[in-house]
């Protein structure tokens, strides 16, 4: 029977997943069959994809990508890998979106921010003490390299203005608007929708404080604009930004990006 094992097409005389494991590895190895980790043996059929992972071992680079992505369904991963996504603003939303999209295997990311990591970022943004003082573009790119070295990550340490939107984002499928200031959010959305026909924007508005997590949602108010948040809870004195709601909103944005890359335009 022809099956794919750890990325290699093999002709094996096996009827079940655990028989494949016996031939390739040992009894304690993890078995992932077509994107799902199994703990009971089951029959395999022609064309199935298996990943056999030895616990605790560090695999060779050429095997690593297949093992990392074994939990994706294979046709999903192939589509996501072709995606080109720009993230504008690398704060609480953008840094967390970037980490999620890198884990998911989005093939090309553009990270844009003008600022450096400072202590007040650590309450919600994906940075560590060791990153303090580094440009956010540099600190985030380092992390993404540790999470998924098989994607292309470009960085631009710059401020987005009405004059540079087109040159920064041209060629990307999707822009994640992940700024803090409402004026910056509005500027990017307006200029990108005007100047880059066809580009999709996944923006955010309203995720401060600790109001119900269930108020945060994704809507599609315009043809090429998706908006995530509760649309009301702005950050202000007395209502700061906290990790959970910011990350929930970032999760909404990242999920919408994946849906769009998979050809789904409904929220």
């Amino acid at each position: 029977m022809k099956v794919t094992v750890n990325g290699h097409r093999l002709e094996l005389d096996c009827q079940t997943a655990f028989q494949v494991r016996e031939q390739i590895g040992s009894q304690t190895d993890i078995v992932i069959l077509n994107g799902f980790q199994i703990d009971k043996d089951c029959k395999i059929t022609e064309g199935d994809a298996l990943t056999i992972i030895r616990k605790g071992a560090i695999p060779k680079r050429e095997e690593l990508e297949g093992m990392m992505m074994a939990r994706h369904t294979s046709n999903v991963y192939e589509k996501i890998k072709k995606g080109k996504v720009a993230i504008a603003g690398l704060g609480g939303l953008g840094s967390n979106i970037a980490v999620m999209l890198a884990r998911s295997g989005v093939g090309q990311l553009l990270l844009i921010d003008f600022d450096v990591v400072e202590p007040s970022n650590l309450n919600r943004q994906s940075y560590y003490i060791s990153h303090l003082g580094l440009p956010k573009t540099v600190a985030l790119k380092k992390q993404l390299g540790e999470i998924n070295p098989f994607i292309k990550v470009e960085t631009k340490q710059t401020k987005v203005t009405a004059d540079n939107v087109e040159e920064l984002f041209v060629g990307y499928d999707i822009i994640c608007e992940a700024f803090d200031q409402p004026e910056a959010k509005s500027l990017l959305v307006n200029v990108a929708l005007e100047q880059l026909p066809g580009i999709k924007i996944v923006a955010a508005s309203g995720m401060a404080g600790y109001d119900s997590a269930n108020l945060i949602k994704t809507v599609k108010p315009m043809k090429n604009l998706y908006l995530c948040g509760d649309f009301e809870n702005e950050a202000r004195p007395g209502r700061g930004l906290l990790a959970p709601r910011v990350q929930i909103c970032a999760g909404h944005q990242a999920n919408m990006v994946l849906r769009l890359l998979l050809g789904i335009e409904d929220v």
Binding site: G206, M207, E234
Partner: peptide
């Protein structure tokens, strides 16, 4: 008309 109003935070 669709009017989107952005509030601060991110």
């Amino acid at each position: 008309l669709e009017i989107v109003n952005f509030v601060g935070g991110g």
